[in-house]
Design a protein around this nucleic acid. Structure first.
Lengths: 203, 203
DNA sequence: TAGATTGTTAATCGATTAACAATC
DNA sequence: TAGATTGTTAATCGATTAACAATC
């Protein structure tokens, strides 16, 4: 049995991917040492991380740029299209609806939901906002398993329960609370204010 | 010399704080075991983390809720007011301007900047948008040392250089690139698309 | 006192780094 | 061949967990 990738390594894969893409070349080779120097990390760590993907370096020449990008993209699943929904069409939710970066990772924001009936029926960047009552139908119809929670902390757990009940199995949570979810449901939290506070505590 | 707090511990402090505040009581005591159970972690780890703050538990009774909240807030610097600026008044930048959560951590978004002259002069949630040329003046006038970068990846490094030149020493970066900064400048990255991709790769 | 809880010291675990053989 | 680079195995480092004395 292959060893599972550590979270720390998994989180670095998009960093490598962004860097490689920023080079703007799909031909030629790049060594783990060059990547490591550019990103300020150890070269063995880079090789270890890349070894979790299907990328294989060539001794003396390094990794083929195009192959390496393809291997990371493949590992992260950028090539299939995965439908995702956003719950909460406030300022942050709408900003994410209009953000184009998800498609680089094969993620398609197919719908948004909001409790405000005024918002229902409107669209942001080709993404339609539905009322909460339509969540079950839209989620099952689109086959979305991935959701982003952008609602106030006070209602986030309730929204989370609804989403899990609709078959969502991975949640990116922007509300500053720890969501309780059943086994098998994955949650990642982004607390923007806390991130800024952590930075500022070192000033 | 006291041992410096590990990043992992520092990142958990806001989690404890959110949980304690969510209990909605400033009186009475709470034990590290109760906190650990609620957050799904080990109780020794909770005590170790809290020990970095000025909080001191009482044997047999645990920590005083109000004191503990105050100690974490104090450690994170929630009580002083720290001015911060946002660079990039696109959808995300404007969402952050109108987000109320920063003030819980004593962070005040005092200004935003954008290259688009159409946006200059407008305000979002009492926060005024300035042209790029005014950055130096506004930053030095407000004394901001903290900045949030919400511009496209292609211009993020340039914006970062400008900010550092204006005296900014801590940056929360939403652009999916690794910023190069001189020693003494702290950067934290939030890559929303990558976070969602990491989640989805486990589906 | 007995029991609950803290805080500290030692043990474990996992991730990063170092050393090095393999290879083109 | 000599040199550059990979991938693997061993060593180190840091963070988490376990054990336990202190105490109210």
């Amino acid at each position: 049995m292959e060893k599972e990738i550590p979270v720390a390594s998994l989180q670095r894969l998009p960093v490598y991917l962004n860097y490689l893409k920023s080079l703007g070349r799909t031909e030629g080779n790049i060594s783990s040492g060059a990547i490591a120097r550019a990103l300020g990390m150890g070269e063995v760590l880079v090789r270890k991380d890349l070894a979790y993907t299907s990328a294989r370096g060539r001794t003396r020449t390094g990794y083929d740029c195009g192959e390496l990008i393809a291997a990371i993209e493949d590992y992260l699943g950028c090539n299939r299209i995965l439908p995702a929904v956003i719950f909460g069409a406030g300022a942050l939710g709408r900003a994410l609806m209009s953000y184009g970066g998800f498609k680089n990772y094969g993620i398609d924001i197919v719908a948004a939901f909001d409790t405000d009936p005024q918002k229902a029926g409107k669209s942001v960047a080709d993404c339609k906002i539905y009322g909460v009552g339509e969540a079950r139908g839209v989620i099952s119809q689109t086959g979305a398993r991935l959701a982003v929670i952008c609602v106030p902390a006070a209602v986030a757990q309730e929204v989370c329960n609804t989403l899990v009940g609709c078959g969502i199995s991975a949640i990116l949570n922007f509300a500053p609370i720890l969501l309780k979810v059943p086994d098998g449901v994955n949650v990642r939290n982004i607390d923007v204010a806390a991130s800024l506070a952590i930075l500022s505590s070192r000033i």
